[in-house]
Simulated assay, not measured.
Amino acid sequence: MFRQTFKKVKTKRGITGKALSQITGISENHISEFLNGKRDVTTEKLWEMIMGLEKLSPGSKQDFAEFIGDGQSLKVTLDLERTVQELDVKDFLQLWQVASERMTEIYQVNQQHHQQKQDLSIAS
């Protein structure tokens, strides 16, 4: 889900892998492999790439939030962003740990669904 959403925003905004690589310091090859499903990225790398999109094309982060969920998710995302900015370091680190664990869970469920779809297509 995150890979497809990231790709959709990158394409919509006309951002090249080269430009994203230059602004994030993440290799063009690494970005390409992520987009093509040949490599996974950590939560931190995904966030770096999302922030790179935002720097290159302001509003990209909002697009990402909108594509992930329904229209309500944008408001929630922006409210959450303001809340996070106000956290002290200790609370922020706690939040980051919980969010990272949740993203890992979501990613694993998505991977399982993807694998099941592949298994079904191979079986038929």
Rank of each mutant, 00 (worst) to 15 (best):
F34C: 11
F34T: 11
F34P: 03
L35S: 10
G37N: 04
K38I: 07
K38N: 15
R39H: 07
R39A: 15
R39L: 11
R39G: 08
V41T: 07
V41L: 14
T42R: 02
T42Q: 04
T42C: 02
T43S: 15
E44M: 09
E44C: 03
L46Q: 11
W47K: 12
E48F: 08
M49F: 13
M49D: 08
M49C: 14
M51V: 12
K55N: 08
K55A: 08
P58H: 02
P58F: 02
G59E: 08
S60A: 14
S60E: 03
S60H: 06
S60W: 02
K61I: 14
K61D: 14
Q62L: 14
D63I: 09
D63T: 06
F64I: 02
F64T: 01
E66L: 15
E66G: 11
E66K: 14
F67Q: 07
F67R: 06
F67T: 08
I68S: 02
D70W: 06
D70N: 15
Q72G: 09
S73Y: 03
S73P: 00
S73H: 01
L74I: 11
L74K: 06
K75Y: 11
V76T: 08
T77Y: 07
L78G: 05
L78P: 03
D79C: 12
D79S: 11
L80H: 05
R82W: 10
T83R: 09
T83S: 13
V84W: 00
E86Q: 12
L87R: 00
D88S: 01
V89F: 07
D91W: 04
F92G: 04
F92A: 03
L93P: 00
L93F: 04
Q94W: 07
Q94L: 12
L95C: 07
